[in-house]
Amino acid sequence: MLAELTPELIVHVQRAATLLQAAQRICILTGAGVSAESGIPTFRDKQTGLWEQFRAEDLASPDAFERDPKLVWSWYQWRRKLVHDKAPNPAHHALAQWQESAETSKSHLTKKQQLTLITQNVDDLHEQAGSTVIHLHGHLWRNRCNQCNASYHYKSVDQKSTLLNNSKENNSKDVINFDDELITCQHCGGYIRPDIIWFGESLPVDAWQTAEQAAANCEVFISIGTSSLVYPAAGLAQLAKQNGATIIEINPNPTPNTIVDITLAAKAGVVMPLLLDQIL
């Protein structure tokens, strides 16, 4: 399988695999590039159709929702329609397989590994593949009240609804309704919004603390499909480096980042299965 790669990349993959086989604590951060390989548009992609006149940055903010909640809600419902049929790619599956192997030692690893998977993505493709993942930027398929923060769940299924499995154990199906009519909270009457961390909002405290702890204590930090230049998430790689970790980047367009020790310049869906074969 390594024959698919250039000789230079093969050397880097084998070097990375050797390091990862020996490591006990590994922290992995995934970004938009991983989801893009499954056909999910990134924030940098140009808006299409009715939304061409808007920038994503101008819609994904508390101020935008305050000004025009219907506009923002409609945009997110449109985004949900775009991605609801997308499936995990080989990178998602490889990470899930690695995580399972690390937890159960069902591999050639000499000892169990602590593999912490963190994502900047709001989709559920990691979960669909079977991973346990920490979401820094929220969940596209969840809703909450903009006023009191109470969670909101659809109560029934209609012709505009779809069932989406958001559970690793396959025992919890939530109903997602694609209607763009605003919904009000049954507790306080506030408008329901996506459970997404918008521009200008703080990251969830528990998720961020877990991510920081994993980065500070890891022996190897892997950045997949993200530039590691946008803060605060970029600070995780810096934190790992400061505490002696080796930094590996998997990205077809590597970023000019002096803290990276090993660069695997290829798509995650190509590199991760090959890397996993070498590790396990």
Rank of each mutant, 00 (worst) to 15 (best):
I134C: 09
K81D: 02
S107M: 06
R142W: 09
I118Y: 12
G189E: 00
A96D: 05
P90Y: 14
G130W: 06
L95H: 11
L164F: 07
P88W: 02
I134P: 05
C148L: 05
V133R: 07
A96N: 00
Y191D: 05
D123A: 02
W98P: 04
V157T: 09
G130K: 04
H108G: 07
H93L: 12
T104L: 01
L117V: 10
I134F: 12
C148M: 06
H135V: 03
A129N: 08
D179N: 07
G138W: 03
S172D: 15
Y76F: 12
N146H: 03
N146D: 09
T119L: 01
R142H: 13
V157Q: 13
S105Q: 13
I134V: 14
D123R: 04
S131H: 05
A91R: 01
V133W: 07
N149H: 03
T116L: 13
S131W: 02
E103C: 01
N89A: 08
Q186F: 04
H93C: 08
V122S: 03
L82T: 06
D158G: 14
Q77K: 13
N146T: 00
W78S: 11
H139D: 07
L136T: 00
S156N: 00
A129P: 02
V122R: 00
S105F: 01
F178K: 10
E103V: 10
N146S: 05
P90V: 13
L95V: 06
T116Q: 13
